[in-house]
């Protein structure tokens, strides 16, 4: 069954001294692709700015804006209504490991097979990936990687940052959804499976009441290629389904940051992120 979800995402900064100009790009508009349909989406800024939208290399809709009036606070709010779809059944008639290792696959998905900035290799992780792959078919492998990651990472906000690499989080033994996703990507890629990072939102409750607004969160999970892309949420050990709203896909976090920009002025501090989600249907 598909859901309709309303998302209100707001993120902000405060500056130690007035900012004279700033240039920003936000990636918070949900995608319309596969079974997901974005019905409405707006991005507003305070102070107000004219926004410019484009689709980047990864197929993400980017909202860019610049500010030239001195300001000490910046708040960006995105509102959207999205129709999500039930998790597709995990395909079983999938390529074998040998087929995944073939040249055409290696060429087509080269970006999703090589280590990236946040998903660097580590011999021990490569070894673990090999072991898991030996015991599972590619299709079973994805949830198995999720289990492996959850056994080694404790979910604990504030222990890592957005630029923490998978290996660091693994050594630390804790992290947030982003670290779970990055670590899963390292293993999937090490085993020779094309794998990508997904950023978006998650409705926290599988039995959400229609019309009730609850606190949600920015979320991250992964997709592995097994003849088709199949999404899995390693943090929650569930396939990506109607509770998951896809905003962007890439090699890792750095390809899909919700907000990135430069400014000239005093040091900035984050005002934090709030996400409210409402199931509408």
């Amino acid at each position: 069954m598909s859901w309709q979800i309303r998302i209100e995402h707001s993120t902000g900064y405060r500056y130690a001294s007035p900012v004279l100009s700033s240039y920003n790009e936000v990636r918070i508009i949900p995608q319309t692709a596969d079974a997901q349909l974005t019905l409405e989406a707006t991005v507003r800024t305070e102070p107000a700015a004219t926004t410019y939208r484009y689709w980047d290399y990864w197929g993400t809709q980017v909202t860019a804006f610049d500010l030239h009036t001195p300001h000490t606070e910046l708040v960006v709010t995105g509102r959207s209504i999205v129709q999500t779809a039930t998790a597709p059944v995990r395909p079983t008639d999938t390529p074998t490991w040998a087929q995944l290792a073939s040249d055409p696959v290696a060429d087509e998905f080269v970006e999703y097979l090589r280590p990236s900035a946040s998903t660097g290799d580590d011999p021990a992780l490569v070894e673990a990936a090999r072991e898991l792959a030996a015991r599972h078919s590619p299709s079973e492998f994805i949830p198995a990687v999720g289990d492996w990651v959850r056994e080694r990472l404790t979910y604990r906000p504030g222990t890592t940052g957005v630029h923490t690499a998978a290996v660091e989080a693994w050594h630390q033994g804790e992290g947030v959804c982003q670290d779970f996703a990055h670590l899963a990507l390292v293993l999937m890629r090490a085993a020779g499976m094309p794998a990508r990072y997904v950023s978006g939102y998650q409705h926290p409750s599988a039995s959400a009441a229609v019309g009730e607004t609850v606190a949600g969160q920015s979320h991250a999970w992964v997709e592995g290629w097994i003849g088709e892309w199949w999404g899995f949420d390693p943090t929650n050990a569930v396939p990506a389904g109607e509770q998951h709203v896809v905003v962007a896909r890439g090699r890792d976090y750095n390809d899909v940051p919700p907000m990135r920009g430069v400014y000239s002025g005093g040091a900035s501090t984050s005002l934090g992120v709030t996400v409210n989600v409402t199931r509408l249907a």
Binding site: W55, D56, Y57, W58, A106, D107, E108, V110
Partner: peptide, 18 residues
């Protein structure tokens, strides 16, 4: 040209796409 070759070039800028 192999995709690998292009996508691993330090001077292939995804920001230039589009």
């Amino acid at each position: 040209v192999p995709r690998r070759l292009v996508l691993t070039s330090a001077h292939y800028h995804r920001a230039a796409h589009g």
